[in-house]
Design a protein around this nucleic acid. Structure first.
Lengths: 214, 214
DNA sequence: ACCTGAACACCGTTCAAGT
DNA sequence: ACCTGAACACCGTTCAAGT
């Protein structure tokens, strides 16, 4: 007998993301999500086949917030930057979810759509096959890598450690062993993530342009 | 009374890495490692403060395998490539550990030493402060991002999914929705990871050279 | 069709006891 | 100092029963 469903997949998705945003990755479990929804853990299996799907759901929620408008008649470089920035902003808005995105992106249809758009903009540069793949992967690695690494030199959000704390930790390393690392940490302490992202992307675009020329 | 220790930290490290290599990340737990060592879980707390330290131990083990020789009198570009390749090879030799490296690298002294060497080579290019930080983060994001993404377009080792399976999955996407993604997946199916890494790194180096020139 | 509680085989970790 | 088993508060998931 077709009983009406108590929840929708979207409700699970929204609640799961809010748990991750507010209490971190480790706070998300079948049981915690169920409780937040006011039901038992087993109920969730009516909407999701497995715990891993919960992670994909969160990735989808984040990637879904990447929206962009490509200015009419713009060059491929502009298009690439616009899309890359959209994804980067979406990811950056949910720092706790970054490890999930690193791990689950190829399983998320929404992420695939963004990837397709990025690829199309690179293809406009005249690249194909191997060259296309290489440029695309580099851009993707940069977006996600920088979103996570927004924090410090070699970086990484240590569970429960803020950007400031990471940078402080790196700055307190022995200066004689890690002179460059300290300089980088100093720079990180006073840098603007948006600016950094723009510049990194530009490094790569210069390289891509050059690859095309050859 | 000082009883002699039954194990060394190095023994835990080696065994932990071998578990990850052979049975995947999820197979590593306090209990499984203890059993592999022929003891009880609580014994491990004599060597390690917390479960998370086990992860760092594994990252250390992987990063420790990154060794390199800088040719005498070589240019900074060569030096950068040599070090980056050393880290990349070490990481690639332990694919199951990649998510750990993404997450724990800043807590691993060994990784910090590699980072310092990379930074020093970039500093030789004449970059400092912000520019140094940006170039370094880009290279780091590329190394780790590509090691993970070695597999497919937007990529990621789905738990228990091989590179071939991921690529196959992406190639079977609807061609009208994802034309570029399919082209990239085709290229990925027949590409050489070493070649790709070299080329990606070169894209970035071209950009870095250019940044220095300005 | 969808909901749900009990139960099972796991976790990491605290505690208290042993040498 | 180092070792260890029992116990606690968690996991994801199977199963069987409910509407």
């Amino acid at each position: 007998m077709g009983r009406p469903a108590r929840f929708t997949r979207e409700e699970l998705q929204a609640k799961a993301l809010s748990i991750v945003d507010e209490h971190g990755l480790e706070a998300l479990s079948m049981r915690s999500l169920a409780q937040a929804l006011g039901t038992g853990a087993m109920t969730l299996y009516n909407y999701v086949g497995t715990r891993e799907e919960l992670d994909v759901l969160v990735v989808e929620a984040v990637a879904g917030k990447a929206t962009w408008v490509v200015p009419q008649g713009c060059r491929w470089e502009e298009e690439l930057v616009v899309i890359a920035r959209a994804l980067w902003s979406a990811v950056r808005a949910h720092p706790h979810a970054v490890p999930l995105i690193l791990t689950c992106r190829s399983r998320s249809p929404t992420t695939l759509r963004v990837a397709e758009a990025l690829l199309a903009s690179i293809a406009r540069a005249g690249l194909q096959g191997d060259g296309l793949l290489i440029a695309f992967r580099s851009v993707m690695a940069l977006i996600i890598g920088l979103a996570q690494g927004e924090l410090a030199g070699p970086l990484a959000l240590r569970a429960g450690e803020s950007a400031e704390e990471t940078i402080k930790r790196l700055r307190s390393l022995p200066a004689d062993c890690f002179p460059c690392l300290r300089e980088a940490a100093d720079a990180a302490a006073s840098s603007n993530p948006d600016h950094e992202f723009n510049e990194s992307l530009r490094l790569l675009i210069v390289g891509i342009k050059n690859a095309k020329a050859r």
